Computed example of a mutant assay.
Amino acid sequence: MTDEGPTEREQAMRAVELEFSELIAQVRRIIMRNADRVSPGMLPGAYKVFTTIADAGPLTASAIADRLMIDKGQLSRTVRELEDLGLVARTPDPSDGRAHLLEPTEDGRRRLATARAPQEHGLSRALEKWDVSDVRRLADLLHALTHEQVPGAD
């Protein structure tokens, strides 16, 4: 920062930070609404565990803990809660007799689909009037950001 105030780059970085903050807040609201639709009072953390199982399962508890970077004790309590709600079920892991695989129940899949339905096409709606070249550019920029690359420097 100079004596005259923030540089153009600093102003641009602050604008990006602000927009990411808004996006994150919007995603949190969606997750909270979806969690409540799956089961009234469900916490966002339990919803994240459930969606991980539903989207990537069947998984062992260790695989979920590693993927979400959460404490195994907390995960165990959350899985018990999800089982009590009838959303997930355990089956023996055929490759490791000591472990169990977690997967969504049919009721869990149905409830998750119902919860996700209201915003199922939200991104498509938000971008439907954008020029396709702008959508591609957004994807390229996000890819570069998440992979710590310079845009267009393939």
Results as ranks from 00 to 15, higher is better:
Asp66Thr: 05
Arg14Met: 13
Met32Ala: 15
Ser124Asn: 15
Ala63Val: 06
Val16Met: 06
Arg109Val: 09
Leu142Asn: 02
Gly57Met: 08
Phe20Leu: 06
Ser39Asn: 09
Met42Cys: 03
Glu17Met: 13
Thr78Val: 10
Ala35Gln: 04
Val135Ile: 15
Ala113Arg: 14
Ile24Trp: 07
Arg116Pro: 00
His147Cys: 02
Ala89Val: 13
Gln11Lys: 13
Leu141Cys: 04
Pro118Asn: 12
Val27Thr: 07
Ser133Asp: 08
Gln119Asn: 12
Asp36Leu: 06
Ala63Tyr: 00
Ala144Tyr: 10
Arg109Ala: 12
Arg125Asn: 12
Ser62Asp: 14
Phe20Gln: 09
Leu101Ser: 05
Glu148His: 12
Glu8Trp: 11
Gln149Gly: 00
Asp131His: 15
Thr91Glu: 14
Leu82Val: 05
Met69Glu: 11
Ser76Pro: 00
Arg110Val: 08
Lys129Asn: 15
Arg28Trp: 04
Gly57Trp: 05
Met69Cys: 01
Arg28Gly: 03
Tyr47Asp: 02
Glu83Cys: 10
Gln74Asp: 11
Gly97Asn: 08
Arg28Phe: 06
Ile24Glu: 11
Arg116Ala: 12
Arg116Cys: 09
Asn34Trp: 10
Ser124Cys: 15
Asp66Trp: 05
Asp131Ile: 01
Phe20Val: 05
Val27Ser: 14
Glu120Ser: 15
Leu141Asp: 00
Lys48Phe: 01
Asp154His: 14
Asp71Val: 08
Ala144Trp: 02
Ala46Tyr: 09
His143Tyr: 10
Glu120Arg: 15
Ala54Gln: 11
Leu102Pro: 02
Pro6His: 12
Ser39Leu: 11
Arg111Tyr: 01
Thr2Leu: 14
Glu81Ile: 08
Ala99Tyr: 05
Asp107Lys: 15
Arg9Gln: 01
Arg111Thr: 01
Arg29Val: 04
Gly86Tyr: 01
Thr105Ile: 03
Ala65Asn: 03
Pro104Lys: 06
Ser133Asn: 11
Arg116Glu: 13
Arg116Met: 14
Gly97Thr: 04
Ile64Arg: 01
Ile24Asn: 06
Asp84Ala: 13
Trp130Lys: 13
Val38Glu: 01
Asp71Gly: 01
Glu81Gln: 14
Leu145Gln: 05
Val16Trp: 05
Arg98Val: 01
Phe20Asp: 00
Ile24Asp: 04
Glu10Ser: 04
Thr7Asn: 01
Val88Ser: 02
Thr2Glu: 04
Thr146Val: 09
Ala63Gly: 00
Arg125Leu: 09
Ile70Ala: 00
Ser95Gly: 02
Ala99Asp: 07
Ala99Pro: 00
Asp36Glu: 15
Thr2Ala: 07
Glu83His: 06
Gln149Cys: 06
Gly41Trp: 06
Pro6Lys: 11
Asp55Val: 08
Leu75Lys: 04
Ala65Glu: 03
Ile31His: 09
Glu8Gln: 14
Gln74Phe: 10
Ala153Cys: 00
Glu148Lys: 10
Glu19Ile: 03
Asp84Leu: 11
Gly41Asp: 05
Glu148Asn: 13
Arg14Trp: 07
His121Ile: 08
Asp131Gln: 11
Leu18Trp: 14
Leu141Gln: 06
Glu81Lys: 15
Leu127Arg: 09
Ala63Leu: 01
Arg125Glu: 13
Ser21Gln: 07
Asp134Trp: 07
Thr114Gln: 10
Asp154Ile: 10
Asp36Cys: 07
